Deep mutational scan, measured.
Amino acid sequence: MQRVNMIMAESPGLITICLLGYLLSAECTVFLDHENANKILNRPKRYNSGKLEEFVQGNLERECMEEKCSFEEAREVFENTERTTEFWKQYVDGDQCESNPCLNGGSCKDDINSYECWCPFGFEGKNCELDVTCNIKNGRCEQFCKNSADNKVVCSCTEGYRLAENQKSCEPAVPFPCGRVSVSQTSKLTRAETVFPDVDYVNSTEAETILDNITQSTQSFNDFTRVVGGEDAKPGQFPWQVVLNGKVDAFCGGSIVNEKWIVTAAHCVETGVKITVVAGEHNIEETEHTEQKRNVIRIIPHHNYNAAINKYNHDIALLELDEPLVLNSYVTPICIADKEYTNIFLKFGSGYVSGWGRVFHKGRSALVLQYLRVPLVDRATCLRSTKFTIYNNMFCAGFHEGGRDSCQGDSGGPHVTEVEGTSFLTGIISWGEECAMKGKYGIYTKVSRYVNWIKEKTKLT
């Protein structure tokens, strides 16, 4: 034993070699072989497995989906700052455009905790909710729209109204504003409101030439003092309507412009014939205590009207009353817009006519005020429907199939267009061939041609 100890002390290297040989010859039971080890760690190889990531292109799944990435790591994937920024906006807080917040056709661009709407022409605001041009839906104005110097929408209202708090709607500024039905039992019968379409306001006024200088022999019209197929109006439903009495009662109609003036057809009036105007009328054979009678003290036909040349060209006249009318729910003026808007309103496509005229061709006159909704007829169809001249200051309205029309005794009465609950004068009943005849239409004086003249002559002093 002493000898062994001496050998170990003198030859430590020998001992180490012996131990190493023993270990190498022993069977290893701690580690699995290569094949079995792979069965336990069965993990798919990654895209760049075996390579240094710093030297390969980034992978979106590896960089940002398996674990949260930084902007720089995302930049490695896209290799483009702009594309990385677009991805980053949604990656950080989701897609803010998912709810489609942009209105009126706006395009949404996502941002971090926010979004941006790219608005089409005519709109602005956070969600493109603000109209900035009158060309689109009248700028959301209830009545009139004008573009300011910086191309912003400025709404306005006709006389007797003021802008509401929203700067879009119009509200009454006087007790009985024009064009409004205020009798409670008839307010439910107000005709369907007309909503502004998209309009090209630059070209809204037709490029028409008034044929002022045409000389033409007097034409022989049949029954051209021209509501057939209409309905009984309720008291106060058309408070701007008046009836004219002269040699015979209810020979023509008219509309209240203001307390002192009536507008009617020029062919209705004769110099030297006494005319009485009755406002607030409903049943011409009954006294309903809503009527107001006034005498006409002055007749002003349009300066281009000449019955000797043509009885229905420039067929418009103004009547001055001896005493002002007292405005109330049964006696209310009709609204008159400017030339541009009167023309736009007419193009809405349908209007209402009213009167006490004959209820059928050569038949009896109506006792109760009649009204009828009539569609506008395109000019080409209008011209083809008659052998008589249709001037540019006239328009056609009615039904091709016949059966409904204005008729004798309705002449001078109103053709009105309702705009968001307020009625505007767009025409004056003038003439036609018979009444409600198939293929024939009622012919009306186009008020847009005469609004400046009306307003100039009827100013209240």
Results as ranks from 00 to 15, higher is better:
Arg3Lys: 09
Val4His: 13
Met6Trp: 14
Ile7Asp: 04
Met8Lys: 14
Met8Cys: 14
Met8Gln: 12
Ser11Trp: 07
Leu14Thr: 04
Ile15Glu: 02
Leu20Trp: 10
Leu20Ser: 02
Gly21His: 08
Gly21Ile: 15
Tyr22Glu: 03
Leu24Gln: 03
Cys28Tyr: 02
Thr29Glu: 13
Val30Ala: 11
Asn38Phe: 07
Arg43Ile: 09
Arg46Cys: 05
Arg46Val: 12
Tyr47Ala: 15
Tyr47Leu: 10
Asn48Val: 06
Lys51Arg: 11
Lys51Tyr: 07
Leu52Val: 05
Phe55Asp: 10
Gly58Phe: 07
Gly58Arg: 09
Asn59Tyr: 08
Arg62Val: 08
Glu67Lys: 05
Cys69Gly: 04
Arg75Cys: 04
Arg75Glu: 14
Phe78His: 14
Glu79Leu: 03
Asn80Tyr: 05
Glu82Asn: 09
Glu86Ser: 14
Glu86Ile: 15
Phe87Pro: 15
Trp88Cys: 04
Trp88Asp: 12
Gln90Ala: 11
Gln90Glu: 08
Asp93Gly: 12
Asp95Gln: 09
Gln96Val: 09
Cys97Ile: 01
Cys97Met: 00
Cys97Asp: 00
Glu98Trp: 08
Ser99Glu: 10
Cys102Arg: 00
Asn104Trp: 02
Gly106Leu: 00
Gly106His: 01
Gly106Arg: 00
Ser107Arg: 06
Ser107Tyr: 05
Cys108Tyr: 02
Lys109Ala: 08
Asp110His: 09
Asp110Arg: 08
Asn113Cys: 03
Ser114Asp: 14
Ser114Cys: 03
Tyr115Thr: 02
Tyr115Lys: 02
Cys117Asp: 00
Gly125Lys: 00
Cys128Val: 01
Asp131Met: 09
Asn138His: 06
Asn138Gln: 05
Arg140His: 09
Arg140Gly: 10
Glu142Tyr: 04
Phe144Asp: 01
Cys145Thr: 03
Asn147Trp: 09
Ser148Val: 08
Ser148His: 09
Ala149Tyr: 11
Asn151Met: 11
Val153Phe: 08
Cys157Asn: 00
Glu159Cys: 03
Gly160Val: 01
Tyr161Lys: 01
Arg162Thr: 11
Ala164Thr: 09
Glu165Ala: 06
Asn166Glu: 03
Asn166Cys: 02
Cys170Val: 00
Glu171Pro: 03
Glu171Leu: 12
Pro177Thr: 03
Pro177Ser: 05
Ser184His: 11
Ser187Cys: 06
Ala192Ser: 12
Glu193Phe: 07
Val195Lys: 08
Phe196Cys: 06
Pro197Trp: 07
Pro197Met: 14
Pro197Gln: 12
Val202Gly: 11
Val202Cys: 05
Asn203Val: 06
Ser204Leu: 14
Asn213Ala: 06
Phe221Met: 09
Asn222Arg: 14
Phe224Asp: 10
Val227Met: 12
Val227Ser: 14
Gly229Thr: 04
Glu231His: 13
Lys234His: 13
Phe238Asn: 03
Pro239Cys: 01
Trp240Gln: 00
Trp240Pro: 00
Gln241Pro: 02
Val243Tyr: 15
Leu244Cys: 02
Asn245Cys: 04
Gly246Ile: 04
Lys247Arg: 14
Lys247Ile: 10
Asp249Ser: 13
Ala250Cys: 08
Phe251Val: 05
Gly253Val: 14
Gly253Glu: 04
Trp261Ser: 01
Trp261Thr: 02
Val263Met: 03
Thr264Gln: 00
His267Val: 02
Cys268Glu: 00
Cys268Lys: 00
Cys268Ser: 01
Glu270Asp: 14
Glu270His: 06
Val273Glu: 14
Val273Tyr: 07
Lys274Gln: 09
Val278Pro: 00
Val278Asn: 04
Ala279Ile: 01
Glu281Asp: 13
Glu285Ile: 09
Thr287Gly: 10
Thr287Cys: 07
Glu288Ala: 06
Thr290Lys: 05
Thr290Ile: 06
Asn295Gln: 13
Val296Met: 02
Val296Pro: 03
Val296Asn: 00
Ile297Ser: 08
Ile300Met: 07
His302Ser: 03
Asn304Lys: 08
Ala307Tyr: 09
Ala308Asn: 12
Ala308Leu: 12
Ala308Gly: 11
Lys311Val: 07
Asn313Met: 08
His314Tyr: 09
Asp315Ile: 00
Leu319Gln: 01
Asp322Leu: 02
Pro324Asn: 04
Leu325Gln: 00
Val326Pro: 02
Leu327Ser: 03
Tyr330Asp: 04
Val331Leu: 02
Ile334Met: 01
Ile336Pro: 00
Asp338Trp: 03
Glu340Cys: 03
Thr342Pro: 01
Thr342Ala: 06
Ile344Lys: 15
Ile344Leu: 15
Phe345Gly: 01
Phe345Cys: 02
Leu346Asn: 03
Gly351Asn: 07
Gly351Leu: 01
Tyr352Met: 04
Val353Gln: 04
Ser354Ala: 14
Ser354Glu: 02
Gly355His: 13
Gly357Asn: 08
His361Gly: 10
Gly363His: 13
Arg364Asn: 15
Ser365Trp: 07
Val368Ser: 05
Leu369Lys: 15
Tyr371Asn: 09
Arg373Glu: 07
Arg373Asp: 03
Val374Pro: 05
Leu376Cys: 02
Asp378Gly: 08
Arg379Lys: 13
Thr386Tyr: 12
Phe388Gln: 14
Thr389Arg: 13
Gly398Leu: 03
Phe399Lys: 04
His400Phe: 10
Gly403Cys: 07
Asp405Leu: 13
Cys407His: 04
Cys407Met: 06
Gly412Gln: 04
Pro414Ser: 07
Val416Pro: 01
Gly421Ile: 02
Ser423Asn: 15
Ser423Ala: 10
Ser423Val: 08
Thr426Val: 00
Ile428Ala: 00
Ile428Leu: 10
Ile429Asp: 07
Glu433Val: 06
Glu434Ile: 09
Cys435Ser: 04
Gly439Tyr: 06
Gly442Ile: 10
Gly442Ala: 15
Ile443His: 04
Tyr444Ser: 01
Val451Ile: 08
Trp453Asp: 01
Lys455Trp: 05
Glu456Arg: 09
Glu456His: 08
Lys459His: 11
Thr461Ile: 08
Thr461Trp: 07
